[in-house]
């Protein structure tokens, strides 16, 4: 594949800010056209683009991934699929775009997109929690011991840390469960 595609993919995986900015610069305007000419707005376009980048990141950090097309073709195909799914859920009918087979995705990629749709609900719920809950749950999901969490968070006691962890997690779960998208993904 061309050098830029691989460089950009590399930047995404390594979290290189400059490279990521280039990715947005080069690809977002075209994705924006795709989404806005199919019933979405600029906010939708950014949203879909971010989700697509997360799908590609997830794939690229997994085993056996190799770019077989340009990064742009891959991203475009993923965005098109994500937006198609969203429209489909909204209208409850099959949605087809009048363009090329070139963007047909592999089954494993379609599966990754479906998973990422759920992951987005998780992350957005997580990001809606307060700073304190986010920090605490970050440590908890990293499998740090409760004693240590209590110390890092300055809670004074392990039992309070446990209590607080429960509160934060309960809120996270309720935010996820009350998200319409989650209900539609997991009827």
């Amino acid at each position: 594949m061309d050098k830029t595609s691989n460089d950009h993919l590399d930047a995404l995986v390594r979290g290189d800010q400059k490279g990521i900015r280039e990715i947005y610069q080069q690809y977002l305007p075209r994705i924006n056209r795709l989404i806005t000419s199919n019933g979405g707005n600029g906010e939708d376009a950014k949203d879909v683009f971010q989700e697509a980048l997360m799908v590609v990141y997830e794939k690229a950090t997994g085993p056996d991934f190799r770019l077989t097309s340009s990064l742009y073709t891959l991203l475009y195909g993923v965005c098109r699929n994500i937006w198609g799914n969203r429209l489909q859920r909204k209208s409850r009918t099959e949605v087809t775009f009048g363009d090329h087979d070139k963007y047909k995705l592999s089954e494993s990629l379609e599966e990754a997109i479906e998973q990422e749709e759920e992951h987005t609900v998780f992350w957005e719920a997580f990001e809606r929690l307060g700073d304190d809950c986010q920090r605490l749950l970050r440590l908890f999901f990293d499998k740090i011991k409760m004693e240590e969490i209590a110390e890092v968070m300055g809670y004074g006691s392990t039992s309070y840390a446990k209590k607080r962890k429960f509160q934060c997690k309960e809120q996270l779960v309720s935010l996820v469960k009350s998200d319409n998208r989650f209900r539609e993904l997991r009827p």
């Binding site: 979290g15 800010q17 971010q50 980048l53 997360m54 992951h119 992350w123 990001e127 499998k143």
Partner: peptide
């Protein structure tokens, strides 16, 4: 999912750049 520290970082970064 939420145990993936790399994704947490990347999401923040993408939001900033966006």
């Amino acid at each position: 999912e939420l145990g993936k520290a790399g994704k947490a970082r990347l999401r923040k970064q993408l939001q900033e750049v966006a």
